[in-house]
C-alpha cells in the first residue's frame, strides 16, 4: 500500500509507504525523546484475534491514523520547524529512509542542538515537580473522559449509518408492496381502499431514499468532523502519557543507574587506596571516576532539559484543549443540519 502525502504548507505531494512512516517515527523519537511524538498505527491486523474489522476497514483506519500522526507532527511548534519533518514532507528522491537517517545522524538529538539545553534549569519554576504532577493528573482525567466521548460519538455515527440502511430498506419494501399488481379478491376490493393506497406506496420509496441519503451524510459528517477530531486529540493525549512514562523510566532511571555506578566506583577507589594497590590500577580507577562524574553531570543537565520540554509539552496539551469546542460545534451543527433536512422530507411525507 502506498500513500500520497500532500502538505499545504510546502505545496507538494510525495509518495510514502508505511515503512517510510515507520523510519520517520523512529528518527523523530530519537531526535525528540523529550517531546510528544505520536504513536503510529499498527502495521498489520493482529492475527488470531477475534475482530469484526474487515481488511478494507483496517486499511482505511490505518490511513486515517497515519493522517492524524503526520498532522500532529506538522502542527507541533518544534517538530514542524525541524529538518526531519521537512524532509519527510518534501523529499522526492528515491530513498527517503536513508535521507531521514542521515539527517538525524547529522543533527543529533534535541539536547545537542537546543540553544538553552544546558541552562534549562534556570528557566524551570521552583515547584516544577508539583506543577507537573498536578497537570499530569488533570490531563489523565481529561484523557479518560475523551475516550468515553469518542466511544459514544462512534456509536452515534454508526447508528446514523445504520439508520440510513433501515430507511432505504423500509422504502424499498413499501415499493415492493405497492408494485404488487395481482388482482385483489372481491371481498377486499369491495370494502377497503387498499387498491388506491397500494398505488401510492410505490412513490414513497423515493422520499425514503432521500431520507436514507440524509442519514448517511449525517453519519459521514459525524465520523469525519466529530469522531476523527476526537481521535486526533486522543492521539495527542496518548503521546503525552507515553512521554511521561519515558521521562520517568528513561532519564530518571538512567540517572539513578549512573549515580549507583558512581558510588560503587567510589567505594572501590576507597578500598583500593586502603589496600594500597598498584598505582596504575588506582590511576585507572580515578580516571574512570572522573569520566563517570562527567556522565552524571550530563545526565543531570539532560534531566533538567527533559523537565523543561515536558513543561512545554504540558502547555501544548492545554493549548489544544479548546479543540473541545470545535468538536462540539461540529457535532451540534451536524445534528441541526441532519434533523432540519430530514424534518423537511418527513414534512413532505406527512400528507
Amino acid at each position: 500500500v502506498e500513500y500520497q502525502v500532500t502538505s499545504q504548507r510546502y505545496k507538494i505531494s510525495v509518495y510514502r509507504r508505511y515503512s517510510d512512516f515507520d523510519v520517520f517515527h523512529e528518527v523523530l523519537l530519537q531526535r525528540f525523546a523529550y517531546r510528544v511524538v505520536p504513536a503510529l498505527p499498527p502495521k498489520r491486523m493482529l492475527k488470531g484475534v477475534l475482530t469484526s474489522v474487515s481488511e478494507r476497514e483496517f486499511i482505511e483506519g490505518r490511513r486515517r491514523a497515519l493522517g492524524r500522526f503526520i498532522n500532529l507532527v506538522a502542527c507541533h511548534p518544534f517538530f514542524s520547524e525541524d529538518e526531519l519533518v521537512k524532509t519527510f514532507l518534501t523529499f522526492n528522491g528515491s530513498d527517503v529512509q536513508t535521507k531521514l537517517r542521515d539527517t538525524c545522524k547529522k543533527t543529533g538529538d534535541e539536547f545537542m542542538t537546543h540553544r538553552i539545553a544546558t541552562q534549562a534549569k534556570e528557566y524551570l519554576p521552583a515547584d516544577i515537580q508539583a506543577q507537573f504532577s498536578t497537570s499530569r493528573d488533570v490531563i489523565r482525567n481529561i484523557h479518560n473522559s475523551f475516550q468515553k466521548l469518542r466511544d459514544r460519538a462512534e456509536k452515534m455515527a454508526d447508528r446514523s449509518k445504520e439508520n440510513a440502511t433501515d430507511l432505504l430498506m423500509f422504502g424499498r419494501e413499501l415499493s415492493t408492496l405497492g408494485s404488487d399488481a395481482s388482482p385483489l379478491p372481491s371481498l377486499a376490493s369491495s370494502q377497503s381502499t387498499w387498491g388506491t393506497l397500494r398505488q401510492s406506496l410505490k412513490s414513497l420509496s423515493v422520499e425514503f431514499s432521500v431520507l436514507s441519503d440524509k442519514a448517511a451524510q449525517q453519519g459521514r459528517r459525524e465520523e469525519d468532523d466529530v469522531v476523527e477530531k476526537l481521535n486526533f486529540f486522543l492521539d495527542l493525549l496518548q503521546s503525552y502519557r507515553d512521554l511521561c512514562e519515558r521521562h520517568e523510566k528513561g532519564v530518571l532511571h538512567e540517572h539513578q543507574k549512573a549515580l549507583h555506578k558512581y558510588s560503587v566506583m567510589k567505594r572501590q577507589m576507597m578500598s583500593a587506596t586502603v589496600q594500597s594497590k598498584e598505582p596504575a590500577s588506582v590511576e585507572q580507577l580515578e580516571s574512570r571516576i572522573v569520566q563517570q562524574e562527567s556522565a552524571i553531570q550530563t545526565m543531570e543537565l539532560r534531566n533538567y532539559f527533559s523537565l523543561f520540554c515536558l513543561h512545554q509539552e504540558t502547555q501544548l496539551i492545554f493549548t489544544y484543549l479548546p479543540i473541545t469546542s470545535h468538536i462540539l460545534g461540529a457535532f451540534v451543527n451536524s445534528q441541526v443540519q441532519g434533523h432540519r433536512e430530514m424534518g423537511e422530507v418527513w414534512n413532505e411525507l406527512q400528507p
Binding site: 500513500y3 502525502v5 500532500t6 490511513r63 493522517g67 538553552i116 493549548t319 489544544y320
Partner: peptide, 23 residues
C-alpha cells in the same frame, strides 16, 4: 523560552497534510 505562547488556531494553521491511498 519556557512558555509556548501560541493559540490553537495558530498551531492548526501551521500545516494541513492529506494522506490518501494510491489505488
Amino acid at each position: 523560552a519556557l512558555t509556548i505562547s501560541q493559540t490553537l488556531d495558530q498551531l492548526l494553521s501551521r500545516d494541513t497534510v492529506q494522506v490518501e491511498l494510491i489505488p
